[in-house]
Amino acid sequence: MKLHFTTTHQDHRIALLAALAITIHIIESAFPSPLPGVKPGLANVVTLFTFIRYGWHSALQVSLLRVIISSLVLGTFLSPTFLLSLSGALLSLVSLIVIQLPFNQSSFHRHQPSALGYAVIASISHMSGQFLVAWYFFIPHPGLFQLLPIFITFAVILGIVSGIITQLLINQIQQRKL
């Protein structure tokens, strides 16, 4: 018996973007981090790009595929690392969706933030999501909150960096069809 899938053009695009995100994610995980939990987050650039260009449906798929498949490749599936990564990815997408809500009306559409604004939002909420899960499930110690300001500072800086990268990326492939 032969299973037959019909795949759409959109599926191909998502597979391509997800593959890119997974590659970046895995390369990133090979580098040591100055502070546990602080990573450049370049993989999020792909999610952000997808969100801005193709909307949250696609971004959600890319983001989840990245988290799940990278963890399978790295052997961290269902481990604490995976849970942290998943919670960060989900919370950052949710906050992107919420921020975009008021701009969905056509009259406001042109006022919506650029990649930079979205990236800062995504980065802060990504960090917060990871932090809350880490605190609730793994280190339920109130002392952990002493570290929160430092983590958020890093999140803002890295958010700005990844926002600029995303914007440049969008400018570069403005005309091309993916």
Binding site: H111, P113, S114, L116, I121, I124, T153, V156, I164
Partner: peptide, 18 residues
């Protein structure tokens, strides 16, 4: 890179939060 008013607002809010 283009900064829009909304971006400035978000950056401002992020600094306040931090």
């Amino acid at each position: 890179v283009i900064f829009k008013p909304a971006d400035i607002l978000i950056l401002f809010a992020a600094s306040i939060l931090t």
